[in-house]
Design a protein around this nucleic acid. Structure first.
Lengths: 129, 129
DNA sequence: TCGTTTTGTGAAACACGGCTAACTTTTAGG
DNA sequence: CCTAAAAGTTAGCCGTGTTTCACAAAACGA
């Protein structure tokens, strides 16, 4: 089953949270994304059955496969947010809107766009907020 | 009721088709977007009840309000497709992916991005295919 | 004009991704 | 330990936007 936009968002948030705090629980993901824990529970079940995450007793972590997607999403997120901020968009709006742009492109197109716009691939530091 | 991504796509396609061929019927929109005519029928009912389109006996046309949205979407479409093509993405892929990007930004952010990237607002000619 | 083809609509179903509410399980303070 | 709070799950619902299938209405060619 192909990953949807929402699935990519969940993976990305697990990645960001694990960088921030190590262990990631469902409730952390729920708070980060602003959805209910029931929604996270459902999403995790699907992501696990497709091999993107593994659920421990009280934590969730990315598999190799999930990590790859998550890193890629985070990289794009940083790219688009940076681009919008450079254009004069506020950090808050840039973050919101970048969240959607990051799902629009294929890997190949994204790389070409990034190459043309000459922005390096450096990820922004992952803030505690 | 706010316009969703799919609603914007319908409006844009009506706009493009009307430039191409004058009269636009539901079936034309269905073929253009690759959805069934039942889907178009439903979508048109919603768009009409919200004042974006008017349905004649055998045609659909945009209201002033719908036209405004449609033009804006087409402008964005052209912007993103042009950007991707300049980056080396094939016309076909650029068109597909641009279709999604055009819905991600607020009016304000889009204008800022366009200003920064220094692309003019000229729309591409509307091809017959 | 008549019958066929094209176009449009309506009903029912489905997938997705949220939600609430009720429940279970785990954790942790006293 | 026991209990209360926190975290997780399950079931059922909703809105959106599709689909298929059956049918109605219009257009059109012979």
């Amino acid at each position: 089953m192909a990953l949807r936009e929402s699935g990519e968002d969940y993976l990305e948030s697990i990645y960001v949270l694990s960088e921030r705090q190590g262990i990631v629980r469902s409730i952390d993901v729920a708070e980060y994304l602003g959805v209910t824990k029931a929604s996270v529970s459902k999403a995790m079940a699907t992501l696990e059955s497709n091999g993107y995450v593994e659920m421990g007793k009280r934590d969730v972590h990315l598999t190799e496969r999930g990590l790859e997607v998550a890193r890629q999403m985070w990289e794009r997120h940083c790219f688009f947010v940076g681009l919008l901020e450079d254009a004069g968009v506020s950090a808050e709006v840039a973050s919101q809107e970048g969240c959607h742009m990051e799902h629009c492109l294929s890997e190949e197109s994204f790389e070409k766009l990034r190459a043309m716009l000459g922005r390096d691939g450096a990820s922004a530091p992952i803030m505690t907020d």
